[in-house]
Design a protein around this nucleic acid. Structure first.
Length: 297
RNA sequence: GCGUCGGUGGCGGAGUGGUCAAUCGCAACAGACUGUAAAUCUGUCGCCCUUCGGGCUACGUAGGUUCAAAUCCUACCCGGCGCA
């Protein structure tokens, strides 16, 4: 099986740097797995790596979508899979690196998704209903899916109904593992991570985050869409609409980023394949990658 | 100084004699994840004991009334506002 390395961990832990280090040592190319960095123009706020930080290492799946459109997991799997294939063909090592756990796992596990693109009309229609109604509807149309779904979660209920609308039912996902994967998890003590989040936010603000968000809006990205994009974009959109003072906005944003980091950890912790390191243990990480590359499977 | 309104859990804020360890929101903590994932959702959230259940301490402080008080009374302390 072809090998890939996946670098995971919470936001602000320092994944990008480590990915570049590994790439430089083992002839790697980075495949970003970040649901926001795929969008053009979301640079400072999404923490997109800069040209100089790349240090000559090719990076893929950045700036491939228009933020006005919804980029989907399905597209990500397709793009990433094809890029990884290409990297393998060149005899290089693909390094999946990013904070979007679902994206990474889906690629690593070879999830096969049915092509059911977002149906905005249906979504708008269904979002008028409350969760009970949605659940009742699902129960009626696909009893099997209804049994396992989180019945309080409108997002999932709507998505399930959307798939049913297109395909008649929600079939179990099929997965086909095609890679030999090393999961490198990066972790820091909570206080340290929080301090990094704080510093990073200040830096982003100093580097012109507000200007970036204004520019996005001037270019036609609605505040509504920005709120959907979350974190920096969501809170700065609140500020620009005078829903929050700058002070309140930055405090709440920082809290939201911390909460996000926690959710990421919850996701990654449950994956027993992940081997955890502190970012400062670069040496150990490098050694682990080396032994992984020598192993046979 | 007088008058007046108020002081409730980490914060905001309900409750105004019994069903109150105290609605709710936030934060915090733990978790889920059939595909919008930086999204969405769930649980816990005074202290102690073993879950059920039980015990203890609590609604500014100190007393009091009452079978029963966060809720009524008195004094004091603190804060806002009005008049001086």
């Amino acid at each position: 099986m072809e090998k890939i390395v996946a670098i995971v961990g919470p936001t602000a832990v320092g994944k990008s740097d480590i990915a570049v280090e590994i790439a430089l040592s083992y002839n790697g190319e980075v495949v970003s797995a970040d649901s926001r960095q795929v969008y053009q123009g979301l640079d400072i706020g999404s923490g997109k790596i800069t040209q100089s930080e790349m240090r000559g290492v090719p990076h893929h799946l950045l700036d491939i979508a228009d933020p006005k459109d919804t980029y989907s997991l399905k597209s990500f799997i397709e793009h990433a899979t094809s890029v990884i294939k290409h990297i393998h063909t060149q005899g290089s090592l693909p390094i999946l690196c990013g904070g979007t756990g679902l994206y990474i796992d889906s690629v690593v596990n070879g999830a096969q998704l049915p092509a059911v693109p977002p149906n905005e009309k249906l979504r708008a229609e269904l979002s008028q209903k409350n969760t009970e109604e949605l659940y009742a509807l699902l129960l009626e149309k696909d009893k099997k899916r209804a049994q396992t779904i989180d019945r309080h979660n409108p997002r999932r209920l709507i998505r399930a109904l959307e798939i049913i609308e297109a395909l008649g039912s929600v079939e179990p996902l099929s997965q086909e593992k095609t890679y030999d994967t090393l999961y490198v998890g990066l972790i820091l003590p909570t206080e340290e991570l929080h301090a990094r989040i704080h510093e990073r936010l200040l830096k982003r603000i100093a580097n012109g985050l507000l200007h970036e968000v204004k520019k996005l809006h001037d270019n036609g990205l609605s505040f509504e869409r920005m709120e959907e994009l979350g974190l920096e974009y969501k809170y700065f959109a609140y500020y620009l609409q005078n829903k929050l003072s700058f002070e309140d906005m930055s405090v709440q944003l920082e809290t939201a980023i911390r909460q996000y980091a926690k959710r990421q950890m919850t996701w990654f912790k449950r994956n027993k394949e992940v081997e955890w390191f502190e970012p400062k243990d670069l040496q150990k990480i490098q050694e682990r990658v080396a032994s992984f590359l020598l192993s046979k499977k």
